[in-house]
Amino acid sequence: MSVVESEVVFTWAGFRRGARQSVPLIAGMLPFGIVTGITGLSQGLSLAEITLMSAVVYAGASQLVALAVWTHPPDLIAVTFAAFVVNLRLALMGPVLAPWFHKFKGWRVWLSLFVMVDHNWALSVREINAGYRDAAYLLGGGTVLFVAWVAATALGAVLGAQLHLPPGHPLFFAALGAFVAVLAQMWRGMGDLLPWAVAAVVAVMVAQILPGTFWYIVAGAIAGSIVGGVRDHRRRLVS
């Protein structure tokens, strides 16, 4: 991190650079957004509700998880907790951008963090490490991706209304498939085997014990993460 805090600026040029470099990422975001829109519609949400959710929450994975267990009226505690747990990773991502934002206060920081998603965060980390020092880069990319995300989920809702799919139609696999694809990318090697196995077993067991709720997701994640984290921590203490 060679960035000196006093050098950091927040300009239109940085905003435009972030926006421009985020455009190619829209292609990867589109299928996920369309799937989220179709899922929302199949769970009985209107186009207005789906679009509102994308604009207010703006975090695809948590929207998809919450929509998968959506009820009418919604279980407020369940969906709020789902959003919190699925998005906990964002709490770890923000601090990595401190070399850019330490110097600033107010809207520059808090608006930039609102549009921070995995894609423009990854680009920003690359730019920080390369010595780039315009913090508006994150907001520029985030604005482009925000508009694309809201549009993609709305498009999915419109498409879903045209298709009229029966429950159990194979197209609904797309929602589950999005997570399977993400998982295939997340696998880091044999070290993941034990925590992932624990998570799978606990999740399946809790799903049997508490059917119709989403707690199995949280229970599996907590059990698997603790097993993996404690094991790694002990290994480091020994060596």
């Binding site: 747990v85 990773r89 599996g220």
Partner: peptide
């Protein structure tokens, strides 16, 4: 460091816990 080590595994185990019972 322990909290960081645990949080490191949250994304993968979370999505897996969503997918496996559904399958």
């Amino acid at each position: 460091p322990l909290v960081r080590a645990i949080l490191h595994y949250v994304p993968g185990t979370l999505f897996l816990s969503f997918v496996v019972p559904a399958l």
